[in-house]
Each structure stands twice: as structure tokens, then as C-alpha cells.
Amino acid sequence: MTVELIDPPGLPVPGIYHQMAVARGSRTVYLAGQVARSAEGEPVGPGDLAAQAEQAFLNVATALEAAGGSVDDVAKLTLYVVDWSPDKLEALGEGVGRAQERLGRDLTKPVTLIPVVALAEPDLLIEVDATAVLD
């Protein structure tokens, strides 16, 4: 396994993410932030955080596959969410859950969530940035 996910003693176990990842490998992949766009560049899920999160994570998976990896190789995620508030956690979790089901992979990784006022385009609600380590 290239990435070992750890919740060390002395830190809380969040359940929805892990506290750290220890990565071993020879290639590091830095993805551009992935958003809710189809392969043709069309918007997916306007106004729907769950739908946009699902598509953004599917796009992360597609990019990693092109590099010869998978979401299993992700060492760190950064989520940028427009107008974040705790009441959006359910929609975010729903979208991530649907992406996990479609991929058949666990997306529980070390994560940083950063609230933002806006993203590059006005219809975007989430951007997912990933760093992965491949063998």
C-alpha cells in the first residue's frame, strides 16, 4: 500500500476523515482543483452541493487513473466550499458518499476544508484539490 491512513493515539478519531497519511512511493501527483464539470466542460448540479461534490470527486478519480493511480493513492485532500456553514455538512457527505459508491472506493482521507466566498466561476460550489503518491 502506498498510503497508510492513521489516527494516532492522543488525537480524536473524526470518523469522516483521518488525521494523517504516511505515503511511500516514487511519484507524487498534484492535481489541479477539480470541480463539477463533465468531460465536455458542461456544469453538473447547478446549485446542488451534493451533486457537485460527487462530480468533483469523480473527476479526481478520473485524473488519478490517467496517471496510473486511483483514489486509494490520495494522501491529502483540500476542499474549498463556497459559503460554508455546518448545515452543509449533510449535503457534502451525501455527495462524497455517492462518489464512493460509484467508485467502489473509500474517500476517507486526511482533509482540510476551507470556506471561500466564491470560486473561479459563479456556478461552482466546491473544488477538490488532491495530492497522491504512486509506486
Score class of each variant (00 low, 15 high):
D135K: 14
V22F: 02
L113P: 00
A51K: 05
L124Q: 15
A39M: 05
R27F: 11
L79K: 00
V44G: 09
T108S: 08
D123Q: 07
G68P: 10
L92S: 00
E54H: 02
V35K: 13
R98S: 02
G47S: 14
A118F: 02
I114M: 08
A132V: 10
A51E: 08
V71C: 14
E40K: 11
G69N: 14
L119T: 07
P110H: 00
G68I: 13
A118E: 10
T28W: 11
E127C: 08
T28C: 12
L5D: 12
P9F: 04
R27S: 13
G10N: 03
K88G: 11
Q100M: 12
E4Q: 12
A130Q: 03
Y17L: 08
H18D: 02
G69Q: 14
L125S: 11
S26M: 10
D129E: 02
G69S: 13
V117Y: 05
E42I: 00
D7T: 12
G15M: 10
L107F: 01
L77Q: 08
R98N: 07
Q52T: 05
L31Y: 09
Y17R: 06
P8T: 08
G95K: 02
E94Q: 14
L125E: 07
R105I: 00
L125R: 05
T62D: 11
P86H: 15
L125P: 10
P43T: 13
E94P: 04
E42T: 06
S38P: 04
G45R: 09
R98V: 04
G68W: 05
D7S: 13
